[in-house]
């Protein structure tokens, strides 16, 4: 999605209050990030992870994720395709977010897929990407993860 469209879409999102008791869950909230660690899931943590930084506002996390997503998605026009392209995209996300001081935490694939996408063709729709970016920013600026940081 062009950055301008994402910004327009984001402007329409209400600021992120937690839903009051009895209200329906906010569709822009990230999924529950708690899980019981197991060795099989941990083997894929290099592929399935999210970022978090303490003392970071949602707005800052959103700006950072969008900037890094832009660098990462530039690989769509690079020399690689398929799995190599995805690896490059994830490596670029790690580099960009890492230099910003974000730490990385592993997730089981199913949880990761509920607010991230590996799809190159077809790309997620604009609405899907908007939702996922907001969820990622909420996770990045939310409570400190219970799992140990990935190195």
């Amino acid at each position: 999605m062009a950055r301008c469209c994402l910004i327009v879409a984001l402007a329409a999102i209400p600021v992120l209050a937690q839903p009051a008791l009895g209200q329906a869950a906010d569709p822009y909230d990230p999924p529950s990030l708690t899980f019981t660690p197991d060795a099989a899931a941990a083997q894929d943590f290099d592929k399935y992870f999210y970022f978090h930084r303490t003392e970071t506002s949602f707005a800052q996390a959103l700006a950072d994720i969008m900037e890094c997503d832009n660098f990462a998605r530039a690989t769509d026009f690079g020399m690689f395709s398929g799995s190599r392209q995805l690896m490059t995209r994830k490596a670029n996300l790690r580099v960009c977010m890492g230099y910003k001081g974000y730490r990385r935490y592993g997730l089981p694939r199913a949880i990761w897929q509920s607010f991230n996408s590996d799809a190159v063709k077809p790309e997620p729709t604009e609405a899907e990407r908007t939702r996922m970016v907001i969820q990622q920013a909420r996770a990045a600026s939310g409570p400190l993860p219970a799992q140990p940081e990935l190195k």
Partner: peptide, 20 residues
Amino acid sequence: FGALIDRLPPIPGVLDYDRD
């Protein structure tokens, strides 16, 4: 060009970083 991204490490007197 859709490459891997990185940066040059700090160079004394020339290049440094505050986070990114």
